[in-house]
Nucleic acid binder design. Structure first.
Lengths: 129, 129
DNA sequence: TGTAATTGTTAGCTCAAGCTAAATTATAAT
DNA sequence: ATTATAATTTAGCTTGAGCTAACAATTACA
């Protein structure tokens, strides 16, 4: 379970989200979603493929492996948890909460996420994942 | 007020702390504190000097400018606020709280810091800066 | 005061992650 | 079926931030 960079986590997360939204995931979709060039996507996808986190055939479509899916889901879970906390507990405006969550999701430890989850759970209107 | 990188914020913060601890701040001290090579420190210090955040003469000692001091103090304040929250509100173990604060301090917006401060202030044992 | 040890700097390498321009492959339309 | 458009990939550049090795300057002490 080698650690991957914040940047690669972003690619993984976005691929997961695009997949959830239904269609086949292509390089162009990811580039558009992350506002990054297609060659940048191409290289990141290659790195993630080498890491065994996704499958990608030449000029083909992109799909997460089970391992990649697990990782992506973890990042997205952290994102939602943090955003919820910022917005509903601290009262940070939605847009700022979203932006901060995008950055914080890559740096908060598993331990802290667990404590944050427990904290949110024991509040009046408990957090639903 | 151009933004600086997380890495440069770390240098700034460490210089601030070393200065608070009394002695003159030298390249070697920073390198030891941040566990980084002296050439790395040298270059970062050059960048911060160009940004007007510190003064440094050839083979001389390092001192923050007023602007650099302000910036460093802001980073350190964020660090302490986040660490306090993680440790005392969420109950994250001290060591993990410290590590997480080290990374989070560079990515949390000013808005969120303000909201976090307000949140901590209105708790039973209010937060003291 | 002259030499040894320490400190600081320079030169130059590596890696990650972005980019553009150009080439290749696939898809769609006439 | 041929051609035009779109998607993907390759090649190669840039920047930031780390590193080591080698060189220069300073400090300390014998």
């Amino acid at each position: 379970m080698a650690d991957i960079s914040a940047s690669l986590e972003d690619y993984l997360e976005e691929i997961f989200i695009l997949h959830q939204e239904g269609a086949q995931v292509r390089v162009t979709d990811i580039a558009a979603a992350l506002k990054v060039s297609k060659p940048s996507v191409n290289r990141a996808v290659g790195t993630l493929k080498d890491a065994g986190l996704l499958d990608h055939e030449f000029y083909g479509t992109i799909a997460l492996t089970p391992e990649g899916e697990t990782r992506a889901a973890q990042v997205l879970r952290r994102h939602k948890l943090i955003r919820h906390f910022l917005q509903n507990t601290l009262g940070v405006p939605a847009e700022i909460a979203e932006e901060d969550a995008c950055r914080m999701e890559h740096v908060v430890s598993a331990q802290t996420i667990q404590h944050l989850y427990d904290y949110l759970s024991q509040q009046e209107d408990g957090y639903e994942e």
